[in-house]
Design a protein around this nucleic acid. Structure first.
Lengths: 150, 150
DNA sequence: CTTGACCTTCCCATGATGGGAAGGTGTACT
DNA sequence: AGTACACCTTCCCATCATGGGAAGGTCAAG
């Protein structure tokens, strides 16, 4: 299978397949005599795994761990569970941060007449201190990216 | 006020102040004879505005709109409200996407024994199709970034 | 007049992704 | 055979907001 077919079959774009290979998330593919990448069914299978993990918001580094566990027949399911739970906590933190933003903003929006006059509680809120609910509560490595179309 | 003091006073790092100037989010600051940037109280005020808008998750392009409205004495509050509401919808979409990820993952985690054995429903879920609740529901320009420490 | 804390600009890196150029390959049709 | 076209290759660039750090200038206190 050429990279284009592999992309269609796995849902991972050709660009990304090359990128994953480059950063060593996946092993280098076989090559034809002329240098074309060639993918087996099991390569496709791995790409699908990666794709699904990305869809669940895992970062590449985490997927790397998951792939290692996936291929380790003597893994402990507790190790997998740990990775997944950590990711859930991460997602929930990000959700909470965004929910706080949305809530604060909603409060301001609710106070705004939204008519032809210039008076605007939203701008006033941005001018002063927009701490309606809580402080931003900083985090270490918030990555928080949502996938596009694909 | 030097850039360092302005940074402390506004909560925007010196690096970012220079960056915002470079991308024309804010006007070029005054300069001392020796080339140091110099900030007035009203400059600080604007930086605080930007900082708060970032804290609410607005992107630079949106903040640019908000700053323009902020400085427009004949603005219509409805215009401000529109920008804010659009951002709320955006946040909610991102929250929903992440919530779906978390839910799917939670389902898998709940099925995983998490012990010393290799059998793992989480990996199996990644292997097959992890569509427990819904399809990813793609979006146009999902940006979804949460601030760090600052 | 030195020291140390500031400032300046410039370049690089991040993470995951896409765009596109320049050039090679493979195949199907005339 | 030749030609067109779809595909492949590598390489570079851009995104977005942010930080790191180097090389060198400025300023104030001792």
């Amino acid at each position: 299978m050429n990279i284009g077919e592999a992309a269609k079959a796995s849902g991972v774009s050709a660009k990304m397949i090359r990128y994953y290979e480059e950063i060593k998330l996946i092993p280098p593919s076989d090559r034809t005599a002329s240098g074309y990448r060639s993918y087996s069914q099991s390569d496709i299978h791995r790409l699908q795994f990666v794709r699904r993990a990305r869809d669940l918001g895992f970062q590449v580094a985490e997927i790397s761990e998951l792939l290692a566990l996936w291929g380790d027949r003597s893994r402990k399911s507790s190790d997998v569970k740990k990775v997944a739970q950590k990711h859930i906590v991460d997602l929930q933190q990000r959700i909470q941060d965004m929910q706080e933003m949305a809530d604060t903003l909603q409060t301001l929006v609710s106070c705004c007449a939204g008519d032809g006059r210039p008076e605007c509680p939203i701008l006033e809120g941005l001018e002063k201190s927009a701490k309606t609910t809580s402080r931003p509560a900083a985090r270490k490595g918030a990555v928080t990216s949502i996938k596009k179309k694909r």
